[in-house]
Amino acid sequence: MNYEERDSLGIYVRGKVLEGKIPPQGPGPHLMGADTLLGNDVYNTQEESLGDIKEIMLDMRSGRVAYAVLSFGGFLGMGEKLFAVPWSALRLDTANKRFVLDASKERLKDAPGFNKDSWPDMADTTWEKGIHDYYGTRPYVDPGR
């Protein structure tokens, strides 16, 4: 399911056709409702499915999105592994209505992950550094931290 299909508030409704063009209405894709992004597919640059977004983690100190929690593997929720992917490692593909992560399936299989019953301490700076190092991103530095 993609963000347009999850849009219960009409955030991404398109306008009327004017002179052969459909002008966008609403805030998307520059501002998007977090709930509409849950369940969105994530693909890699090789067009392989990597899973979908299960949760979006907000850094309440900075007011920024820190991570998307991605599910990968398993069957019908069994054996599913969860990954915290830095938000900056994802790119929204508006043409295909999905996210893109520049990582192969093999790389994701080896990524630091967790299961739904054992979440990591995402506020731990050592854990944070390891995740950002793995995906080649830089953490947002909050000057008040």
Rank of each mutant, 00 (worst) to 15 (best):
G20S: 04
G20M: 06
K21Y: 11
G26F: 11
G28W: 10
L31H: 14
L31Y: 15
L31V: 14
M32W: 03
M32K: 05
M32I: 14
M32S: 06
G33C: 12
G33P: 11
G33N: 14
G33Y: 11
T36L: 04
L37Y: 01
L37R: 03
L37F: 01
L38K: 06
L38H: 10
G39W: 00
N40Q: 12
N40C: 15
N40R: 02
D41V: 15
N44G: 06
T45N: 15
E47Q: 14
E47P: 05
S49W: 11
S49V: 10
S49I: 12
S49A: 13
G51Y: 05
G51C: 06
G51V: 00
D52P: 02
I53V: 15
I53L: 07
I56F: 02
M57Q: 14
D59S: 04
S62Y: 01
G63E: 08
R64H: 09
V69R: 08
L70N: 07
L70H: 02
F72H: 15
F72Q: 12
G73D: 05
G73L: 08
G73R: 07
G74L: 01
F75K: 13
F75M: 13
L76E: 12
L76Q: 15
L76G: 06
M78P: 00
G79A: 15
E80C: 08
E80I: 11
K81C: 03
L82K: 02
L82M: 03
P86A: 03
P86K: 04
P86R: 01
W87M: 03
W87E: 02
W87A: 02
S88H: 03
S88I: 00
S88K: 08
S88E: 10
S88V: 06
L90Y: 05
R91Q: 13
D93K: 09
D93H: 10
T94G: 05
A95P: 03
A95K: 14
N96M: 13
K97C: 10
R98C: 08
V100H: 01
A103G: 05
K105G: 07
R107Y: 12
R107G: 11
L108C: 07
P112C: 07
P112V: 09
F114P: 04
N115A: 09
D117C: 06
S118V: 09
S118C: 10
W119N: 09
D121T: 11
M122C: 08
M122H: 08
A123S: 09
D124K: 00
D124F: 00
T125F: 01
T126R: 09
W127M: 03
E128K: 14
K129G: 05
G130P: 01
G130T: 06
H132I: 07
H132C: 07
H132L: 02
Y135V: 09
T137G: 01
R138H: 12
R138D: 11
P139V: 05
Y140W: 08
V141W: 07
D142E: 10
D142C: 10
